[in-house]
Simulated assay, not measured.
Amino acid sequence: MFKIGSHLSSSKGFLHMGKEALSIGANTFQFFTRNPRGSKAKEIDEKDVAAFREFAEENGIGVILAHAPYTLNACSKDEHTREFARMTMEDDLRRMEYLPGNYYNFHPGSHTGQGPEEGIRQISGLLNELLRPEQTTTVLLETMAGKGTEVGRSFEELRAILDGVELEGHVGVCLDTCHVYDAGYDIAGDLDRVLEEFDRVIGLDRLKAIHINDSKNPFASHKDRHEKIGEGSLGLQTFVNLINDPRVKELPFYLETPNDLEGYGREIQLLREQSR
């Protein structure tokens, strides 16, 4: 079954998000674990979690994706910033175990002048410090557009991070279509080659989720500005090709386009109509 959802606000709880997802034709969704600019997270409401788990099972809501705040930077040269990343991720992973078997996605971070090799070492080191053999949550590294000193701008950088993680079964990758296109991977012109390269460098078995976004910017611009599906430089046909590619079509897809709930519903309907 084609699994697609959008980014929803977690402010009213998991059951509310589940009902919102269903109302727009989604069968999965993504949410921020806390304010995307970083703050203390709401306390877990165990009754809400239990009600959502029952609702999700009854309505076929698949694996959901939690997104770490944008301010989490595991490889900053500033020790205070790295400590914030450690505390935030540790708390998020603890909370995710109330909803076993789901995904937690984060931006690898920016090395802020230390160099990508040191950034990679620090990211892998944080994951080794926090991951536990008994956890059920899979942590995903997001592909990045390559602006500034971002780490994760290439498949090779992501592979290097993964290679440094001891509990390799607990980590994977979330591919963002806008980001990889802006980074210089031509998924619009040659999707086959990009997926083949991903498989060669990282392995398609490590690809767990896809952020499905058009781009406001041209190819290889190394920027990060999402656009509605079919209205940017990627174009609708790129997404038709992607969601029907047998190598990835069973993965969950998550919209992060500049839209409201009604707009997400229209995009989900559009993509469902193109799904074979």
Rank of each mutant, 00 (worst) to 15 (best):
F106W: 03
I120H: 01
S110M: 09
N128D: 10
S124D: 05
S110K: 11
N128V: 11
G101L: 02
N102Y: 10
I120A: 01
Y98R: 11
G109V: 13
E129G: 04
L99W: 09
G113A: 12
I123S: 09
H111W: 09
Y104N: 01
Y98T: 10
R121W: 08
L127T: 00
G119P: 06
Q122R: 15
G109W: 12
G115M: 11
S110D: 09
G109A: 14
L99D: 07
P133F: 07
I123H: 10
Y103P: 01
N102D: 10
T112W: 07
S110F: 06
L99A: 09
G125T: 13
R132C: 03
G113W: 12
L126S: 05
L131K: 02
I123R: 11
N128P: 06
R132P: 02
L99V: 11
R121I: 10
E117Q: 15
Q114M: 15
Q122P: 05
Y98N: 12
L131M: 03
N105V: 09
P133Q: 05
L130D: 04
Y104Q: 02
G101I: 02
N128A: 08
F106G: 01
L130R: 03
Y98H: 14
Y103S: 05
S110N: 11
G119N: 11
E117H: 12
P116H: 14
N102H: 15
Q122E: 15
S124P: 06
I120P: 00
L127R: 02
R121D: 07
E129A: 11
Y98I: 03
N128C: 08
Q122G: 05
Q114D: 14
I120N: 01
I123N: 06
G115H: 10
L126H: 06
G101T: 00
E118H: 05
N102Q: 10
L130T: 01
R121E: 14
T112M: 15
H111R: 09
S110I: 04
R132N: 04
G125Y: 12
L131W: 02
G115K: 10
Y103G: 04
L127P: 00
N105Q: 08
P116G: 09
S110Q: 08
G109I: 14
L127Q: 00
R121A: 15
P116E: 15
G113D: 08
E118C: 00
G113R: 09
Q122D: 08
Q122K: 15
Q114L: 15
L99H: 08
S124Y: 07
N128W: 08
G115V: 10
E134Y: 04
P116Y: 14
G115S: 14
Y103A: 05
G109Y: 13
I120K: 01
R121H: 13
Q114Y: 04
Q114C: 05
P116F: 11
L131C: 02
G101F: 00
G119R: 05
N102K: 10
P116T: 14
Y104V: 01
R132A: 11
L131Q: 03
I120E: 02
P108A: 03
N102P: 08
L131I: 07
Y104I: 03
F106P: 01
S110G: 13
N105G: 06
G109H: 12
P116L: 07
L126V: 06
N128H: 11
N128Y: 07
E129T: 13
E118L: 14
P116N: 13
G125W: 13
Y103I: 06
H107I: 01
H111S: 10
P133E: 12
P100W: 06
H107V: 02
